[in-house]
Amino acid sequence: MKMTIPREELMTKGHTGCQGCGAMLAMRYALKALGKNTMIVIPACCWVVAIGPFPYSALEVPVFASAFACAASTAAGIKAGLEMQGKREINVVAWAGDGGTFDIGLQSLSAAAERNEDIFYFCYDNEAYMNTGRQRSSATPYGAWTMTTPKDSTKNEFKKDIDAIMAAHKIPYMATLSISEPEDFIRKVRKGMGIKGMKFFHILSPCPSGWLSDPSDSVKIARYAVETNIFPLYEVENGEKYIINKKIARKKPVSDYLKLQGRYRYLNESQIKTIQEAADKNWRSLLKKEEFPDT
């Protein structure tokens, strides 16, 4: 078998991420794809902590810490500054959590997408404000426990559909990525490198301390998310052309995914049924979008 994953490591030892953190693997894979000619903007999120304290850095590319709401506009500024100095070939990356993407950072992200800035935007989505100790975000899924959706009142709303929002911006390229599928992950990031304009990547990022799961299960949970169609892997070109990367012949029931995570321990049968139906509906809708791009 031919290996497609580069050996080069641009994420070094000494990061301060939690054991089993999906976002650590995500960064490692993203940098393997992007290479050294890359600059990263990180707003407030787990990763700005994970990089390590001054004067150290766990990344061997330049990093600029930005305020919470403006990863995309800061990255756009960096790209403009580089271009005006003739440095055109540098990959400028905004790397944000779900809070910095779905919630407080959505305005600047939407604007950067509308202007079609030539940047990469990665959202590592651990489905809550994990860095501040597990509070609900608009990325938190239905039925999940967090510190601000406690056991008698777990989240009653569905997760915001950020991918549909980004597709509606008609950006040149976007894709969902999973840490359980590194080959697919790296292939899609590399594909983005050949495309000028806004690139958006959405990574489901298991968080053992927030999802109340076993750190050794993180990759498995990510895989189950794909195999249950909770988090399908697909790409969208220009907001229209959908390409599903993985169609599961015998998909798993969502309960296989849910039961590995303590945050779902308060779910009753009817709620599990609701989650199953939502996943099935999303999948059917995705198939339809792939088949009929004009609808």
Binding site: F64, A76, G77, I78, G81, L82, S108, A111, E114, R115
Partner: peptide
């Protein structure tokens, strides 16, 4: 000869200036 970025808010205006300035550009 400058890049003019039509941002969506003053918050992003300053964020973009900060980003560009961090690369050594005059903003």
């Amino acid at each position: 000869k400058a890049r003019y970025i039509n941002v969506e808010s003053e918050h992003s205006a300053m964020a973009a200036c900060i980003g560009a300035s961090s690369t050594g550009a005059r903003v």
